[in-house]
Design a protein around this nucleic acid. Structure first.
Length: 492
RNA sequence: CGGGGCGUAGCGCAGCCCGGUUAGCGCGCCUGCUUCGGGAGCAGGAGGUCGGGAGUUCGAAUCUCCCCGCCCCGACCA
């Protein structure tokens, strides 16, 4: 069994070890692309379910658009090209041909099957979706158009890391069209709030909401908003984004509607997304040196029951009791696993389920049976207590709720403890040469100054928080006038 | 793409410098018995084109060249 490197020794090694030990994902033969294993995919399925329900509650519907996009589409929105052209995979042929070279059979693209117009594999779907929206939107009565897509996308990054940055990744992308700028802006902010809710209430991951600086804006957006979380190494991770696209895509793809007065106008657009990257954030927010730690609301398995026995007669009794408890609890708390394997001892099983991040463990043996109780142990703080079997229907949901809240509080405390206000360049460099963290600092608003800070320290503006100090001050780097503080940090 | 490290059984590694019988070790896996309340013990067993290709040699895991992949640091990146 692979040992998990301690966080204090090598944080990024620890991260990879946790993923391997929890059997969440592993590398594949395809460079930069990972295999998401059942333990990891179960989490993604829960993410999908929860978000999808919320999207629909707010009036969105799902659709599916092609994986391949005509190359020319990308060129239609100038900034969009600039942002994505460098990382696109391109389909150039539609057929292979067998050839024999030095007696060996090989396959090459059949030159005769070269495509007249090449396709790119979508790095994001704005272009192909907006090309379609042109056909769907004529009247203000067609608006708003609120569509989401669950899909895979591909961005040919130079350096990849499991979940955080993979060549292919899974995500949802919402693409909406509206009659007015105000409606578009309201949708953008509404979806950002959904992401904040999801991160904090479901993933127990406190975030800072705010607007991106101009240089960090999505390619083609008028305004980009993000939620930023703090990992245990005090670096920031952008957990989701929501973009107000203004009329940029409507103009690029000629999407117009006629209003009630008969006037023809371009529509207003938004897009918003959360990807499998969030699972990297989830791992780095809660897990410890013993492996994965998951908040109950997103865990694939909420609790595991470990029957303990010596003799075969005991096994029959204990397993039956465990199954009965599981059956009673499942309708209340969700997936519960009874670990009946008879080829390993309880201690081994405890360690294994701890590695895999199951939030709650119940142990039931002959001694417990006699006392009509089980031992109940929480993964994240090792709190262990005896609970009467009749009380489980209330005790288990309550304990899961305590775990959920505890994980959030713990993460929130880390965030608060590692967040400071900094006013001098000297203190700024000291902070980021040392432990790092989140720093609220004055900034002049100049992109060149922002770039200079990044070049010198690798620190970037994570966002301009909604809740921030807007009193005047001097830019932490250049000393010019500032109209408030923004959030600085090193990031993933 | 630049610098560094690594690639030998499912996992972790030794062997390589200095070429030489059937390539080892630990964990895991299979079979059996004893065990079972915090990573069990004993016995037997299965599992390898030594990342790929070419070369040097009587002989290559070991030497040379090329390629591929992974990890770390850069560059790159909603």
């Amino acid at each position: 069994m692979a040992q998990i490197t301690k966080r204090s020794e090598d944080y990024s090694r620890w991260y990879q070890d946790v993923i391997a030990a929890a059997e969440m994902a592993e590398n594949s033969p395809v460079r930069g692309c990972m295999v998401i294993r059942p333990n990891g995919y179960a989490i993604w399925e829960n993410i999908q379910r929860t978000l999808d329900d919320k999207f629909k509650e707010l009036g969105h519907v799902n659709a599916y658009f092609p994986l391949l996009i005509p190359k020319s589409f990308l060129a239609k929105e100038a900034q969009h090209v600039e942002g994505f052209a460098k990382e696109c995979a391109i389909v150039t042929h539609h057929r292979l041909k067998q050839v024999t070279v030095n007696g060996k059979v090989d396959l090459i693209p059949d030159p005769e099957s070269k495509l007249e117009e090449e396709y790119i594999i979508r790095p994001t779907s704005e272009t192909i979706i907006w090309d379609q929206y042109r056909k769907w939107i004529q009247s203000y009565r067609d608006l708003p158009l609120l569509i989401n897509q669950w899909a895979n996308v591909m961005r040919w990054e130079m350096r990849t890391r499991m979940f955080l940055r993979t060549t292919e990744f899974l995500w949802q992308e919402g693409h909406t069209a509206h009659a007015t700028a105000e409606e578009g802006r309201a949708e953008t902010l509404q979806m950002l709030e959904v992401y904040r809710w999801f991160a904090e209430d479901i993933l127990a991951m406190p975030v800072i909401t705010g607007a991106k600086s101009e240089s960090e804006r999505f390619a083609g957006a008028q305004e980009t908003y993000s939620i930023e979380a703090m990992m245990q190494d005090k670096k920031a991770l952008q957990a989701a984004t929501s973009h107000d696209l203004g009329q940029n895509f409507a103009k690029a793809f000629d999407v117009k509607y006629q209003n009630a007065e008969g006037k023809v106008e371009f529509v207003w657009a938004t897009s918003w997304g959360m990807s499998t990257r969030i699972m990297g954030a989830l791992i780095m927010t809660h897990s410890d040196d013993d492996g994965l730690v998951l908040p109950p609301r997103i865990a694939g398995t909420k609790a595991v029951i470990i029957p303990i026995w010596r003799k075969d007669e005991e096994m029959v009794e204990v397993v039956a009791a465990a199954e009965k408890i599981a059956a009673e609890l499942r309708p209340i708390v969700g997936a519960i696993h009874v670990d009946k394997r008879d080829n390993m001892r309880p201690g081994w099983k405890y360690a294994e389920w701890e590695r895999k991040g199951v939030p709650l463990r119940m142990e039931i043996g002959p001694r417990d049976l006699k006392d009509d109780q089980v031992m109940m142990a929480a993964r994240h703080d090792r709190n262990k207590q005896a609970v009467k079997i009749v009380d489980l229907v209330t005790a288990v949901p309550a304990e899961l709720e305590r775990i959920q809240q505890d994980l959030f509080d713990r993460a929130k405390q880390r965030l608060v403890d590692a967040t400071v206000e900094i006013d001098t360049w000297d203190d700024f460099t000291k902070l980021f040469q040392g432990d790092g963290g989140f720093a609220h600092c004055h900034w002049c608003g100049d992109a060149a100054c922002e770039q200079a800070i990044q070049d010198k320290t690798k620190v970037t503006i994570r966002n301009i928080p909604f809740e921030r100090d807007e009193t005047e001050g001097e830019c932490v780097h250049c000393g010019n006038k500032s109209i408030g503080r923004v959030l600085f940090s090193q990031s993933y």
